[in-house]
Computed example of a mutant assay.
Amino acid sequence: MNGDLRVVVVGSGRVGLRVTRLLDARGHDVVMVERNPDRVERVLDAYVATVIEGDATHPSVLEQVDLDRADVVATMTDTMGTNLSVALLTRRLAPDVRTVMRVVDGNIEEYEDYADALVFPERAGATAAINAVLGGDVRTVENLPGELEIIEMTVTEGAPVAGKTLQEVSLPRGSLVVSGAAGHAVAASDTRLEPGHGYLVAVENQVADEVTRLFRG
């Protein structure tokens, strides 16, 4: 799944808000559904998502996000019943929309048939949720302290960096190509960014979207 996505995130707790911030930093259009008025205000103050106040387990609330335009619904609350209900409701209302469900109790195998992708952030952090939401050829390999991330990116045909060496590419300040995805060697000025090949890139949060566009077009 490539390009800018319209992602509906249900729940603005620790995991939901972190996922939303990361998606927003990469240029994706995020709609948050949250039933707690105080949390709604917190998300609005952060300017990271359009916010709909309400209970997403109610069809009338979930329909407000305009599911026909959504690419992914990621239900990230800390209540298993809510997450399961939203995933099933999304499949009923919009079968073509990808569903990503947070598993709270760790019994991932039990829920495999009820969403397209499952995450257990208590074990893997928001990184697993981001990878499940985005899929495709941009994958967060590591969440480091602060706002720095290491991302595995595959260069597409026609991307601004395709076929060029790092010496010929002007990457934004706050980003660094570390190595090819296989990790056989540290990248150097003569490392060529070949279409179809993956590379590990360290990025600061504020330039993640710009770097992604350079690699993906």
Rank of each mutant, 00 (worst) to 15 (best):
L200K: 10
M76S: 04
T99A: 02
D113G: 15
D137Q: 15
V119Y: 04
T156M: 10
A188R: 10
M80Q: 10
T140D: 08
G125R: 04
L88W: 02
Y114N: 11
G135H: 06
A181P: 00
V155E: 01
E210R: 12
L84M: 09
A182V: 11
A94T: 03
S175V: 07
T90S: 05
V201H: 06
N83R: 01
L171W: 03
E109W: 13
R123V: 08
T156K: 15
A128L: 11
A187H: 09
P160L: 00
V86G: 02
V186W: 12
R123Y: 15
A87F: 03
L84V: 15
P172S: 06
E142L: 14
A126W: 07
R69T: 10
D68W: 13
G158F: 04
A182G: 10
E157F: 13
Q167D: 14
P172Y: 00
D78Q: 08
A115F: 00
A128R: 13
V169W: 05
V104A: 03
E194R: 13
P121S: 05
T79V: 15
S179Q: 05
M76Q: 01
D116M: 07
E147N: 10
D105Y: 02
N83Q: 01
T79I: 09
V104E: 06
H184S: 08
F120C: 02
L193C: 00
A202D: 07
R213M: 08
G158V: 09
D116F: 05
G146S: 11
D113W: 09
T212M: 10
V72L: 02
E149M: 13
V100E: 01
I151P: 07
T90C: 01
F215A: 04
R91H: 15
N131R: 05
E149Q: 14
A182F: 13
D78K: 11
S189A: 12
V203F: 00
F120D: 08
A128V: 14
L176N: 15
V86R: 00
L118Y: 00
G196K: 04
A202Y: 03
L118S: 06
E157I: 09
V186G: 12
D209S: 12
T191F: 01
A124D: 11
V203G: 01
L134G: 06
V211Y: 09
N83D: 02
